[in-house]
Nucleic acid binder design. Structure first.
Length: 428
RNA sequence: GGAGAAAUACCCAAGAGGCCGAAGGGGCUCCCCUGCUAAGGGAGUAGUACGUGUAAGCGUAGCGAGGGUUCAAAUCCCUCUUUCUCCGCCA
């Protein structure tokens, strides 16, 4: 949610910035509605002040034996008027809120306008691996090694599900453990959140109402707001940890990470390019989140990007970092860098981490604040998140980039301690 | 899942239609006294949101949340949430 005051003060500039995201803003109806809202509030509060004043005098009048029936009659009429105006003010307030909640976050000024085609690669690590044999794709490799069982995943749960088996499960777990150990080294707090969340979390993270149909809903109440959903990313949980609280500034920047599976419908997105585990309904991810003061958020963003990139570097994978154009950033974010790993069989780079700064957009939606020691007043925090990392894209990339002519796979050195020193995965 | 009890400010807690935005304690802040400390005395101590104002301020809301009754609600009624106790269920 963006700040209405910013629109009032700088309508043209914000309209222009949002246009870079492909969003056409017309703020005039909103501003008019807000003026009406404020007028209604002023009016009703004047009446309430009058009611309070008269009510306070009634006990004294009664004690003095004076008649109060006439006053009661007038007050009843006043009460009706107040109720009417209260309802009007509430309605206007909700309208303003809904419109405001539907406006995307304002992109940072240095982002290029436009969509994907305007993303710019800002850093590349390593080189495309070359093979002196015909390399296989990860689905074939994993199936032959027996480390991923696609058919039985489908048998149990339908398309988009798979099982990790044996060394596959160990490799997956080693990746997660490696990420966790790196984050702990950097002083991040480890969180294991619930996997079922309430509607408010989705709204607070800026994912709802837009993506309400992209998640798996539990319970059967017709009203979505009373149901829970399976979290699509740990961000949805972490970003809401301090909602409706005022944090101590000394706790900021707060650095968190969580491991959770991510549950997503991914409706209609299955393509040849996304075979195997590149896009599934359930995948594992370690997610980093920072809650910061506005002054800290720029540095926090750099830190998260560097952290995600350093994990990839330590795994020895070829990848690049891409700065997203305004239109490719999600509605919630004012800035996003993607880390994309090379998948040889597809000949493309696939996202393994998306690092974003939401500014105060999420904090405004879920009311997360801190007390500014300078002013003594509460102010909205900034929230940032980044995958660190998602295994479902790394696993295929790792398997493909590290394959040998005999179909075996070299385990990166950093993962070996987490696999009991094992260096290679080969078929039995 | 069923049955009971509870929810008041930083914490504990009183309050049972108007004199209650809230007694009393604890804590915290400041001051006094005591050559340190302990003890003692005094004063202060909703945060917040919204509206209005250049501002000091003023107004409105606010006793778990949302509704209702009433001229007037922390107080009465309804719904919900959470916590505690008991019972049931538990692949």
């Amino acid at each position: 949610m963006i700040d209405l005051k910013r629109i009032q003060e700088n309508k043209e500039k914000i309209t222009e910035l949002l246009a870079r995201k492909g969003y056409t803003a017309d703020f005039d109806p909103l501003l008019k509605l807000d003026a009406e809202r404020r007028a209604a509030i002023s009016e009703v509060e004047t009446l309430k002040a009058k009611r309070n004043k008269v009510s306070a005098e009634i006990p004294a009048l009664k004690k003095a034996g004076q008649p109060v029936d006439e006053i009661f009659k007038q007050m009843r009429a006043l009460g009706d008027e107040i109720a009417m105006l209260d309802a009007k003010a509430k309605e206007l307030d909700e309208k303003v809120f809904d419109i405001l909640a539907g406006i995307p976050n304002i992109p940072d000024e240095d982002l290029l306008p436009g969509e994907k085609e305007n993303n710019t690669v800002i850093k590349t690590f390593g080189e495309k691996p070359t093979f002196d044999f015909e390399p296989q794709n990860h689905v074939d490799l994993c199936t032959k090694l027996g480390i991923i069982d696609y058919p039985r995943g489908t048998k149990l749960s339908g398309g988009g599900f798979w099982l990790y088996r044996g060394d596959g499960a160990r490799l997956e777990w080693a990746l997660l453990n490696f990420f966790i150990s790196e984050h702990l080294k950097d002083g991040y707090e480890f969180i294991l959140p619930p996997h079922q969340l309430g509607y408010n979390c989705g709204f607070g993270a800026g994912q709802f109402p837009k993506f309400t149909d992209e998640v798996y809903w539990l319970d059967c109440d017709e009203d979505r707001k009373k149901n829970r959903f399976m979290l699509p990313t740990a961000e949805t949980a972490l970003v809401n940890l301090y909602s409706n609280e005022i944090m101590d500034e000394t706790k900021l920047p707060m650095k968190l990470f969580a491991y959770t599976p991510c549950y997503r419908k991914e409706a209609g997105s299955y393509r040849a390019e996304e075979r195997g585990m590149v896009r599934g309904h359930q995948f594992n991810k370690v997610e980093m989140v920072q809650i910061t003061t506005p002054a800290q958020s720029k540095a926090a963003f750099e830190e998260l990007v560097n952290k995600a990139a350093s994990l990839m570097e330590k795994l020895g994978l070829h990848f690049h970092v891409s700065k997203l154009a305004a239109g490719d950033c999600s509605a919630t974010m004012c800035r996003t860098y993607d880390i994309e790993v090379w998948i040889p069989s597809m000949g493309i780079y696939k996202e393994v981490s998306s690092v974003s700064n939401a500014g105060d957009y999420q904090a405004r939606r879920n009311n997360t604040r801190y007390r500014d020691t300078q002013t003594g007043k509460p102010a909205f925090v900034h929230t940032l998140n980044g995958s660190g990392l998602a295994t479902s894209r790394i696993f295929p990339a790792l398997v493909e980039q590290n394959q040998n002519a005999d179909g075996s796979i070299n385990i990166p050195e950093v993962l070996q301690p987490f696999m009991g020193g094992q260096k290679v995965i080969k078929s039995l």
